[in-house]
Amino acid sequence: MNDNDVPLWRLHLLRAFYLLITVGLTLSFGPVMLQHTDLWAQRKGETASLVSGLAILCLWGLRYPLQMLPLLIFELIWKSVWLIAIAYPLWRGGAMTPAVEETAFACAMGVVLTPLVLPWRYIAHHYFRKPGQRWR
């Protein structure tokens, strides 16, 4: 399977998803990255930097939607892990706060939408069936 086997509508859908991620993360984290307190930087700085970097890389997905698929796979994985390892135990223990509920909703939306956008046959071919690159 090569790049031309992925329908044009799927490429446009991927581009729209990359743009959605970029805009969403920029609106969420952009303002606080420019103006923040030292306490915020100590508690949330790493997370904000990571997702800001992800937003910037997603811009390349507009031009190279298939080559940047690992970003969307990463999005699906980290959100799934967060929901299972963080949100679910908090929910079971009755310790959900409004901020955690908001994050859980956003992550759940990502876990639901991302698999609908991903070209699974292309991913299966290029990341599972295709031989890996040589080690020596």
Results as ranks from 00 to 15, higher is better:
residue 78 W to F: 15
residue 17 F to I: 00
residue 8 L to D: 12
residue 119 P to G: 05
residue 43 R to I: 00
residue 1 M to P: 02
residue 17 F to S: 03
residue 87 A to H: 08
residue 4 N to M: 12
residue 67 Q to V: 11
residue 35 Q to A: 15
residue 119 P to H: 05
residue 85 A to V: 14
residue 74 F to G: 08
residue 42 Q to R: 13
residue 85 A to K: 11
residue 136 R to F: 12
residue 112 V to Q: 10
residue 24 G to I: 01
residue 82 W to M: 10
residue 21 I to E: 01
residue 83 L to K: 06
residue 8 L to H: 09
residue 122 Y to D: 05
residue 21 I to M: 02
residue 89 P to D: 02
residue 102 E to A: 11
residue 27 L to T: 11
residue 24 G to W: 02
residue 111 V to P: 01
residue 113 L to W: 11
residue 127 Y to H: 14
residue 52 S to E: 01
residue 96 M to S: 10
residue 112 V to H: 05
residue 44 K to H: 14
residue 106 A to T: 02
residue 107 C to E: 10
residue 40 W to D: 13
residue 51 V to E: 04
residue 84 I to R: 03
residue 125 H to K: 07
residue 97 T to V: 04
residue 122 Y to P: 03
residue 10 R to Y: 06
residue 75 E to V: 08
residue 17 F to P: 02
residue 33 M to E: 13
residue 118 L to W: 00
residue 14 L to D: 08
residue 73 I to M: 11
residue 52 S to I: 02
residue 19 L to H: 07
residue 39 L to P: 04
residue 132 G to F: 14
residue 20 L to P: 00
residue 94 G to I: 09
residue 88 Y to G: 02
residue 55 A to Q: 09
residue 126 H to E: 12
residue 92 R to L: 11
residue 115 P to R: 13
residue 98 P to C: 12
residue 58 C to R: 04
residue 98 P to N: 11
residue 24 G to M: 01
residue 25 L to V: 09
residue 8 L to S: 12
residue 23 V to H: 01
residue 117 V to L: 09
residue 48 A to S: 14
residue 128 F to A: 13
residue 32 V to D: 05
residue 104 A to K: 03
residue 84 I to S: 12
residue 96 M to T: 08
residue 124 A to L: 14
residue 11 L to V: 11
residue 47 T to I: 00
residue 122 Y to E: 06
residue 39 L to E: 15
residue 17 F to T: 01
residue 98 P to V: 08
residue 119 P to E: 04
residue 59 L to G: 03
residue 134 R to K: 14
residue 91 W to Y: 15
residue 82 W to N: 09
residue 54 L to D: 03
residue 15 R to M: 11
residue 133 Q to D: 09
residue 7 P to G: 02
residue 117 V to D: 06
residue 26 T to I: 01
residue 15 R to S: 03
residue 62 L to Q: 09
residue 84 I to M: 11
residue 23 V to C: 00
residue 76 L to Y: 02
residue 44 K to D: 15
residue 109 M to D: 00
residue 124 A to M: 11
residue 90 L to P: 00
residue 12 H to Q: 10
residue 76 L to Q: 03
residue 5 D to V: 00
residue 128 F to S: 10
residue 71 L to W: 02
residue 106 A to V: 08
residue 74 F to L: 15
residue 88 Y to W: 15
